[in-house]
Simulated assay, not measured.
Amino acid sequence: MRSHTQEPAPAEGTLFSESTFDRDDVVRLLRECGDTPTFEQCDFSGEDLSHLDFRGARFTRCNFGQTVLEHSELARTRWLACKSAGARFRFANASDARFCQSDLNNTDWTGSKLASATFTGVKLTGARFVDTRTLGLVFHDSLLVGADLRGLSFRKQTLEGLNFSDADLSDCDFRDAVFEGGSLRNALLRNSKFDGADLRSVDLSGLRLADVLQHLKGTILSVDQAVMLVGDCGVRVM
């Protein structure tokens, strides 16, 4: 262990608190602890933790800034109030994982498995989700500003408080989805599907009527939204 304020004591259980770990430390404790560990206020920042097995582990207020977790086994892990900006989760298995109230800005999830994973109250600005396996993936009340979400399916989901401003939503499937708040401001909607989607409570500012006619055909809009879009074309609705 590089440094710590409290010596971890595996003999007392699998709780590790206020410690700073390098890869060798993590490999050793995962081998020795015998069951799923819990980490509180631990620092893994900048480490290469690729190809390690963390299945079922719990992380609370931990720091994973710029950490490499590529090809790691993260199924059923729980993450609460963690700082993980810039972490790389490429090709990791995070099926049934739960991420809550965490900073995941600019993370890379390319090729990862996210089946039944849940993100609640997280910051995912600039995050990259490309070629991911996402059956059952759910986002709640999260920032996805500028995120790359190409090809994801949100079909028939209820989308609560999702900010997709400036996000790349090309080829996404929003058919029959219900948006509760949130924003599509300046989002890229190329080849996305919105048939039957309810967008009445979404911020559509920055979109033009041409965008709606081309990409949002078949959606449900409010009167105020329709007036705004028509007004942007220079037409006055009296």
Rank of each mutant, 00 (worst) to 15 (best):
D224A: 14
T36N: 12
H51T: 14
L135D: 15
F179T: 06
S222E: 06
T36E: 15
A197Q: 11
D224Q: 12
E70I: 01
R55T: 15
C42R: 04
A94P: 02
M1F: 06
R78F: 08
S142Y: 08
G196T: 06
A117D: 08
G206Y: 06
D22K: 11
N163H: 06
R88E: 07
F44A: 02
F164Y: 10
F194G: 10
R90D: 11
R23E: 10
M228R: 15
A11G: 05
R98W: 12
S201I: 04
Q6F: 08
D166V: 08
V178D: 10
T219H: 04
D211A: 02
E180H: 10
K156D: 11
V138Y: 04
C172Q: 06
G206K: 05
L169Y: 04
H51G: 01
D211L: 02
D224C: 00
Q6D: 12
T5Q: 13
D195S: 14
E32D: 12
G56E: 02
S183Y: 01
N186I: 04
R31A: 15
L199G: 03
L204T: 01
T67Y: 03
R175N: 10
R58Y: 03
A57G: 04
L74P: 01
R128S: 12
R55E: 15
G196M: 07
L149N: 05
A115L: 09
T134C: 13
F194P: 10
D103F: 00
D171N: 14
L152Y: 11
W79I: 06
S165D: 05
S84C: 15
S72K: 11
F91G: 00
R78Q: 13
R58K: 12
A167F: 04
R78H: 10
W79M: 07
T67D: 04
E47D: 08
F119Q: 00
S102W: 09
L143W: 12
S222T: 07
D53R: 15
N63E: 01
L159S: 01
S72W: 09
T134K: 03
S183H: 03
D166S: 14
Q41D: 11
V235T: 11
V230P: 05
T77V: 13
F44M: 05
R155V: 03
D141G: 02
H51M: 11
G146N: 05
M1N: 02
A117Q: 07
P10Q: 07
D53M: 09
V223E: 14
D232F: 00
D25P: 10
E12L: 15
Q6L: 15
D141F: 09
V27Q: 13
D48G: 05
L29E: 03
T118L: 09
G234K: 06
R23H: 05
R175E: 08
L49S: 10
L229T: 05
R208S: 15
D198S: 04
E47C: 11
W79E: 09
L29C: 03
F89K: 07
R200H: 03
A115V: 13
G231P: 08
K193M: 13
V122I: 07
F54I: 07
D148T: 14
R190I: 13
C100D: 09
D232I: 01
D168G: 07
D198Y: 03
D131T: 11
G234E: 05
A94V: 01
S84T: 12
H4M: 12
S170A: 15
S95Y: 03
D24K: 15
